[in-house]
Amino acid sequence: MIPFDYRRAGDAETAVAAVAGNPGAAFLGGGTNLVDHMKLGVAEPDLLVDVTRLPFDSVDPLPGGGLRIGAGVRNSDLAADERVRTRYPVLAEALLSGASGQLRNLATTGGNLLQRTRCGYFQDVTTPCNKRRPGEGCSAREGYHRYHAILGASPHCVAVHPSDLAVALTALDAVVRVRGPRDGHGERAIPAAELHRLPGEHPEWDTVLGHGDLITAVDLPPLPMAARSRYRKVRDRASYAFALVSVAAAVELTGDVIGDVRIALGGVAHKPWRATLAEAALRGRPPDRAEFRAAAEAELADAQPLRDNRFKVPMARNTIVSVLAGLTGEEPR
């Protein structure tokens, strides 16, 4: 690990200025991903600006009924919050399905969103990786890619984003609040669904944020339908593993039909995948398995699986059907 300087930020403005003013600087949250990457040589910051003692450590009600989650709120505290558990169960379930108890006590809301892919080649500095060193080539495309993307990938990168939290926030129409070097004393708002990006020509950019941009909070809209929501994660082990496929969904029944629905997929793309085609196919339709299946197939029609992850297409379809069936009383949760 290369030597680095460490500073504890007293306020957001100072933190942003310190990172923005040094191309080699990085924000330090809980450290569960960044410290690992520093050990592996994947990240080599020469200055860490610790933002864990900034006053972004609470969950507060918003006028109008939503919630503002401070970027420094630990994953464990957020999952344990009564308001989250009762009004946005999909969010608590997503958090609880990620990492381990010890790591959730350290990991922050902002850091969770900005964690990087667990693609084995990205984490192994001895192998080519376009995300780590643009232009080197992608080792995963013809290599070990069981966990990789089936939607929205590019010739340059087939990595998936590993956050469960981000998938739930995408389904919930959450908004990420950011303070950057050009925002003065203000903040800008980015829909959670637009925070992460597809790899395209630039897989080195995970998100739309620039250097020095600091996530300060995540806002949840009131969204009463979220009270009937859930997160299901399919993985190789029963616990403490990244998703092969995950589904975050919320459903609102109006009479005998689906009045509104939110679906986001994890483990399938470089970003949390909002299933807008499936949602459109389901609105106004009866909540039955044939409809769920047709909607899931519409969403996955353009899937381009790799040699060894073809199983993800039926797995994603079946998980969508199962989650929607559970939410609409077709089968027990």
């Binding site: 460490y6 330090l28 450290g31 569960t32 410290v35 108890g101 350290l106």
Partner: peptide, 11 residues
């Protein structure tokens, strides 16, 4: 409870 291998002492 927390893992201590992914935390810098200075922090």
């Amino acid at each position: 409870r927390a893992t201590t291998c992914l935390a810098f002492a200075v922090a």
